[in-house]
């Protein structure tokens, strides 16, 4: 029933990210900048980014098992993934997001199911 929503106009794919940085550590500054560039290069994607500064919220890092910074966790779209590093090489994350973006082409039903699964 919700399938029709994705017909026609380009679908706005949502990308939910949890981004772990360590204050103003050099790698964390570089990573912030690289992430900004990545967002700019993917205008069709709607990003939702939660930034966790491990110096302020170490408990979250511990709970999520993130022991190096910067680290980026893709929560949506599925299947998601975890990246360590300052994103100086953003190819892997771009490919992960873009592969997910291409799903509508493989059939609207597929996307619908995937999204429902992701939201559950």
């Amino acid at each position: 029933m919700s399938v029709s929503k994705f017909d026609g106009a380009s679908p706005a794919l949502k990308c939910v990210i949890r981004f772990f940085v360590a204050g103003e550590a050099p790698n964390s500054i570089i990573a912030r900048d690289n992430l900004r560039r990545l967002r700019e290069s993917l205008p069709e994607i709607h990003f939702e980014i939660e930034i966790v500064d491990v110096n302020v919220n170490p408990e979250i890092a511990l709970q999520k098992g993130v022991f190096v910074t910067p680290a980026l966790e893709v929560l949506e779209p599925p299947p998601g993934g975890i990246f360590y590093g300052n994103l100086s090489n953003s190819d892997p994350i771009r490919r992960l997001i873009e592969t997910s973006k291409d799903w509508p082409g493989s059939g609207p039903k597929g996307l619908s199911e995937q999204q429902t699964a992701g939201h559950r």
Binding site: A22, G23, A25, N27, S28, I30, A31, N34, V54, N55, F67, V68, T69, P70, A71, L72, G81, I82, F83, Y84, G85, N86, L87, S88, N89, S90, D91, P92, I93
Partner: peptide, 9 residues
């Protein structure tokens, strides 16, 4: 996946 330098911060 490693995508650049990181540290033990």
């Amino acid at each position: 996946i490693i995508s650049g330098d990181f540290d033990l911060g």
